[in-house]
Amino acid sequence: MPDRSPRVPVHVDPRGPRFAAVLTTLVLVLALATGSGVLLAAQAVVFALGAVLGLRRSPYGWLYRRLVRPRLGPPRELEDERPPRFAQGVGLAFAVLGAAGYLSGAGWLGVAATAAAVAAAFLNAAFGYCLGCEAYLLAVRGRARLGQG
């Protein structure tokens, strides 16, 4: 029986989310260059699967385990799944916004939201820098401030 307790965080091979970020960057750049709302919506589904079901259930995670991981050695360390999973949720928000923009004819919204998502995915892929995770503390601070006001 899978352990669903939030007290016991799932740990994943950190190279998995990095590989997923590379694929995500390629898909998002393609969506931006072609202005394709459909492609962006497909990426939104991938984000949603990763954020809701966990990184292992995301299609990119599956590809990593099937195609990439067998060619690599075992990971030196595992990482907590929560930060990259949170980042998938942030990516989902931008992808949904962008897809809604493209598909409703508000092309500027599609371009702007997809550009933001490309920046975050690329920073993760190229530098291992998790923009969504960085935003988390700022979000907590902002929420606390609103609560006080």
């Binding site: 072609t34 202005g35 092309g107 371009v111 490309v118 920046a119 690329f122």
Partner: peptide, 19 residues
């Protein structure tokens, strides 16, 4: 079906993110 605006934005975003 290339969107010229999107292509330029993509290049600009990648360059800025690299920096």
């Amino acid at each position: 079906m290339i969107d010229p605006t999107g292509l330029v934005v993509a290049a600009a975003v990648l360059a800025a993110a690299t920096l």
